[in-house]
């Protein structure tokens, strides 16, 4: 499946929008878990938990491998980093923006003084 970067981003944000899926990610941040281990603390049925894991797999946040009868899931952090990059850059930009605002305000003050002199 080939997706452009923004669609991948949409899948990641969609995957993170549900508290159960965030809980799964939290669990997996502690290491590999099988599906029943993931389902039990969520107090949900096995099929319901499996559905959430599939959403995470589609967003490529989780990888699953089959070992005998067990389905083992692990976290794949790459897409998570990509998704957070935008908001991170947006927020870290604040001081740079305020410096641009300083420059604009200087211009506005000069304009006002010029207008006052012309009057």
């Amino acid at each position: 499946m080939v997706l452009d970067r923004s669609s991948r981003l949409d899948l990641v944000f969609h995957a993170l929008a549900h508290p159960a899926r965030r809980a799964i990610i939290r669990q997996l941040s502690g290491g590999e878990r099988n599906l029943s281990e993931l389902a039990s603390p969520l107090k949900m049925t096995f099929p319901a938990a499996t559905k959430h894991v599939r959403v995470l797999e589609r967003a490529r946040l989780v990888r699953r491998r089959i070992a005998g009868r067990e389905h083992l899931c692990r976290l794949h952090a790459g897409p998570l980093k990509e998704a957070t990059l935008w908001t991170e850059q947006f927020r870290k930009n604040w001081e740079a923006r305020f410096e641009a605002l300083d420059a604009l305000l200087e211009e506005m003050k000069t304009e006002e003084r010029t207008r006052a002199r012309c009057r």
């Binding site: 947006f90 930009n93 923006r97 305020f98 641009a100 605002l101 300083d102 305000l105 200087e106």
Partner: peptide, 25 residues
Amino acid sequence: FNAPRRLVWEAMTTPDKMRRWMLPP
């Protein structure tokens, strides 16, 4: 900011001025 609040308000609420400083990523 080294400007009266009237100008800061104007810079922060007027779209053509907002575009000048609200730097995108």
